[in-house]
Write a protein that binds this DNA or RNA. Structure first.
Lengths: 108, 108
DNA sequence: ACGGTATTTCTAGAATATTCGAAATAGTAT
DNA sequence: ATACTATTTCGAATATTCTAGAAATACCGT
C-alpha cells in the first residue's frame, strides 16, 4: 500500500454511486453479484454502471470474473483493509502521552 | 453514519494533498499541528491548504481550535472509525458459508 | 495606532469527473 | 446465420474540483 493507491481507493469510494455498488458487493459476500443484478438493485443506466465498475476494479476494490456472458463482481476485502491500515499507520507517533497534561490526568 | 457522510469523508481522503494532511495529523496525535507547521511540512500554498482543510473539517475528519492567531488541527479518529464500520456493515449478509463449496472445504 | 505574522476569502482559469444515449462487441441459444 | 442478452466503448454535454495569486481579515506585540 502507498499514498497513491490509498488515495485512489478512497476517491473511488468517495462517490455515492460507487459506494452503493461497493457496499452491495460487501453484503453479497463471496458469491458476488453479476452486473445485471447490480443494475436492477441500484437502478443505474448500464453505461454509467460500467463507468463506475471500471473505477472500482481499477483501484483493486472489486474483482470481476467472466462466466459465460455475465460478469460476476466481488468486493476485495483485503484491499480496503490495506487502506485502513495505511490510514492508521504511525498513529500518534512522536506523541508521548505520559508527557502530556500530567496535572489534568492526575485530577481525573 | 450514513451513505452521504461516509462518501463525503472518503472523497475528502481521496485527494493526495488532503490524504497527506490527514496522515500528518494522525501521526501528530492529540497535540495536533498548527496550519503553518502543516504548510512547512507539505509545501503547499496557504490558500490551497486552506481550501483542503476546509474540506476535511467539513467532513468531520479534522477539528480546529483557535489558539491566539494560530489554528491547531487534529485528526478526528472516531469519524474515520465510523466510516470503516459503515463500510464493513452487513458484510456477507445473506451468504451462508456452510452452504458453499462443501466438497472444496472437505478437500482442504 | 502600527507592523508583522497567521489564516481565510475571493476569483478565475485549468483540470478532472460524471452522466447516459447510441453504437459496438461478445457470448448463447435456436 | 440469426436473434437475443449481457456488457463495454464512444462521444459529447454538464458539473465539480483543484490551484494559487491577490486581497482581506484577525490577532498579537510594541
Amino acid at each position: 500500500m502507498n499514498r497513491k493507491i490509498a488515495a485512489r481507493c478512497l476517491a473511488e469510494l468517495g462517490n455515492l454511486t460507487r459506494l452503493d455498488i461497493y457496499r452491495l458487493l460487501v453484503r453479497a459476500g463471496p458469491p458476488g453479484l453479476n452486473i445485471t443484478d447490480i443494475q436492477t438493485r441500484l437502478d443505474v443506466p448500464a453505461s454509467t454502471l460500467a463507468f463506475h465498475l471500471r473505477g472500482l476494479v481499477g483501484a483493486g476494490l472489486v474483482t470481476q470474473e467472466k462466466k459465460g456472458r455475465t460478469v460476476i463482481c466481488r468486493a476485495q476485502y483485503e484491499r480496503m483493509d490495506g487502506v485502513v491500515t495505511f490510514l492508521r499507520e504511525h498513529c500518534c507517533e512522536g506523541f508521548d502521552s505520559d508527557l502530556v497534561a500530567p496535572l489534568a490526568r492526575r485530577a481525573s
